[in-house]
Design a protein around this nucleic acid. Structure first.
Lengths: 191, 191
DNA sequence: ACAGGATGTCTAGCGTTGCTATGATGGGGT
DNA sequence: ACCCCATCATAGCAACGCTAGACATCCTGT
């Protein structure tokens, strides 16, 4: 009863992750509008209903992909911040890593920040990876700065605006580096 | 041949606008996911195919709504900028008007800036109302500032990020005024 | 004034979407 | 060895965007 059901649970968990990565790969290859439950089921070589035995619906699958994305983004931001030689350059490094993440994985970024989601932000039940991302921005400002959370929010907002407007072609995508430079110097100016 | 066809053309133009406003009202009342061609057709009291005799498809209807939105936003920003007593306060006034627009007409704002669109931004065939909005931001900076377009892009990006993250609950929506204050003073600092 | 043609509108339907009820199948427990 | 339950696929539902073809309506030319 135990060894067998344990194996089954392992297989189930493995298939769970398989669905997530398949959704992600499909989205990154052809965009989220190409991610249908049928194509996804075909890709994992199961029928549609198994998707619904793992997730409450398509939105939940997208949310799971997004959560994976937050783990990666948090790691990337952390790495960037630690690699910065001085605190003054930490903010710039983190911002650059953020924009890089957004431009190199546009579909993943969309799942995290654009598509409608049930993920709770900025609340008690915020998933840890999500808060970790935010905290990387906060950590770029001095601990005795009372408004560092506000600073982080605005920095994040500005980067998000740049990323999404550039991705959808609403601002020319070529000058992101200049914009980044501007926003960092302006915000760090009295940070 | 002329008077009659003129009347028809008037009726057609009137119906054209009727579709646009109906789509907008429906979106603002129940969100864009509730705007289906069937419901829209029922609302304007015509059958579905008439929608396709006026627009190339649903996306084109959304784009038309967005274009109307840009006209209104441009007017609102212009009003705000003119009402500002000093140039130093013009930027703040325009930014505030922008955020007000985004929070009070979230569905319209989505059509303009979030939903996938064919509208050309920042190019030769950019529709005038669209460019007018951008120019209101540019006009907040000194004419002999070579980088005023960059300033405008970053300002716009930051506001857009704040607006969309607050609307989707990804940052607490209550502190927009503080964020606005921060971003304006930081950017205007060396504007 | 009347037939003919063009214009405009609706009914009906196609293919696809997210999602689910039902039935078969095969391995595990006693 | 047999039953039984969990697991999975087939098939189908309602709703979606969109379109072909039938129908009606009104203008035009003789």
């Amino acid at each position: 009863m135990s060894a067998i059901s344990e194996r089954r649970e392992r297989e189930r968990a493995h298939r769970h992750q398989l669905i997530i990565t398949a959704a992600r790969e499909l989205a990154e290859a052809e965009g989220w509008e190409a991610v249908t439950t049928r194509r996804l089921a075909e890709r994992v070589e199961y029928s549609q209903p198994v998707l619904y035995s793992h997730f409450d619906g398509k939105d939940a699958i997208v949310a799971a992909v997004a959560l994976d994305g937050f783990v990666e983004l948090a790691a990337s931001l952390h790495r960037a911040r630690q690699a910065a030689p001085e605190p003054a350059q930490a903010l710039r490094a983190v911002c650059r890593a953020y924009l890089e993440f957004a431009t190199e994985r546009p579909a993943l970024y969309q799942a995290m920040f654009v598509l409608p989601t049930d993920l709770k932000f900025a609340s008690a039940e915020t998933p840890p990876p999500l808060r970790a991302c935010f905290d990387e921005f906060v950590a770029c400002f001095s601990p005795d700065n009372e408004r560092r959370e506000l600073f982080a929010e605005v920095t994040w907002s500005a980067l998000h605006g740049m990323a999404v407007l550039a991705d959808s072609g609403r601002i020319p995508p070529g000058l992101q580096e200049e914009r980044l430079d501007f926003i960092v110097t302006q915000i760090a100016g009295t940070g």
